[in-house]
């Protein structure tokens, strides 16, 4: 079971080259297959994930959550998806049509791109970039553009405000996000995901870098625009922020992309701080799924516990607290590494 997916990929490439295809083209086809696999995983995952979030939020509020359709209401999301697919696709007349229509596509493309570097098992990265972690951060920073496009393209005050807010928030929280990961990179001495996972074979980085983990968790929550940092969506004041004017599948694409980002960030957190796919007994790809889902549940719990914080508090929390703390963590890590090296480790 351990090497099931890796063996399948090898078999596919061997079969294609056996058909007389150049190795480069066989690799390209494998890449396409991997992309399709990622997209299928993303789409299947979101149906489970939305159901899970509804269930968890229901349990937190001592409700039952969805329970009508299928076992434990598991098919509720599928019914919702069908509803969204059959809805009218409305493009308001005064919008900037080109931007309005491309924004959801840009958002979902960027969030699917994040999965390229995540190791989903032993040797199961799609591409094991030598700058994998940096790739994740810089591609993640692109999603601001998509939200800005949605906010501007809708030609609606609330959309624009939501877009502006999310951009301001994401740009502010990108800095502590990157800085908190730097501590891990300093210990590992590499930005490559497989190196980071390998460096945690003895001890998880969450133990070595607790401050980095907490700052990363907070800034990732803000970067994902999730509660309690969901100011850009703030239903009570902005209806839905940048998504206000979107209907049907266009809106669903935003939703899909948000959850895709959420899973990607949780998987990254599992990889960087919780030992990645390493674990006893079970196959490696199952371990990363288990860890990711546990982290996702913490995200759910936090969202359904804390009230939304105010916009100015949000910004000053990033600039006046998280950035200094994450900088101090870098300093501390550097000093610690130096001292340990002097001591002869």
């Amino acid at each position: 079971m351990e090497h099931f997916f890796v063996n399948t990929a090898h078999a596919l490439v061997a079969w294609l080259t056996g058909l007389g295809l150049a190795p480069g083209w066989a690799d390209l086809i494998l890449l396409v297959v991997q992309w399709i696999a990622v997209i299928i995983i993303v789409i299947l995952n979101i149906t489970v994930l939305i159901w899970l979030e509804r269930k968890v939020s229901g349990f937190i509020q001592q409700r039952l959550g969805p329970n009508r359709l299928g076992p434990f209401g598991m098919f509720q999301t599928i019914a919702d998806a069908i509803k969204l697919l059959t809805k009218e696709d409305i493009v308001p007349s005064q919008t900037d049509r080109m931007i309005f229509k491309t924004a959801p596509m840009v958002f979902i493309i960027i969030s699917v791109m994040l999965y390229v570097v995540i190791p989903m098992g032993d040797g199961m990265e799609i591409v094991d970039l030598n700058v994998g972690l940096f790739y994740f951060i810089s591609i993640g920073s692109l999603s601001t553009i998509a939200l800005l496009m949605a906010g501007w393209g809708s030609n609606n005050k609330w959309s624009l405000l939501g877009g502006m807010r999310s951009v301001a928030q994401m740009i502010s929280y990108e800095i502590p996000l990157a800085f908190s990961l730097l501590g891990v990179v300093m210990i590992t001495g590499s930005l490559r995901m497989s190196d980071i996972v390998a460096a945690q074979s003895n001890i998880w980085f969450v133990v070595l870098q607790p401050i980095a983990f907490i700052t990363y968790f907070i800034s990732a929550t803000a970067e994902l625009n999730r509660g309690p940092f969901d100011m850009p969506e703030a239903e009570q004041e902005l209806t839905s922020g940048a998504y206000t004017e979107y209907t049907g599948m266009r809106w669903a694409l935003f939703f899909l992309a948000e959850y895709t980002n959420l899973v990607a960030v949780s998987a990254l957190m599992a990889t960087v701080f919780f030992g990645g796919w390493q674990g006893p007994w079970l196959p490696s790809w199952l371990w990363i799924i288990i860890k990711t889902y546990l982290i996702l549940n913490v995200f759910f719990l936090i969202k359904w516990t804390f009230p939304r914080i105010r916009m100015d508090h949000l910004m000053s929390f990033s600039w006046k607290f998280l950035i200094p703390v994450s900088l101090a963590n870098i300093l501390l890590t550097g000093a610690g590494i130096e001292v340990l090296m002097r001591m002869g480790w």
Partner: peptide
């Protein structure tokens, strides 16, 4: 990646 992060992600915003 620096190009993406700094130019596409920040400067253009």
């Amino acid at each position: 990646l620096v190009q993406i992060m700094v130019y596409a992600g920040a400067i253009s915003v």
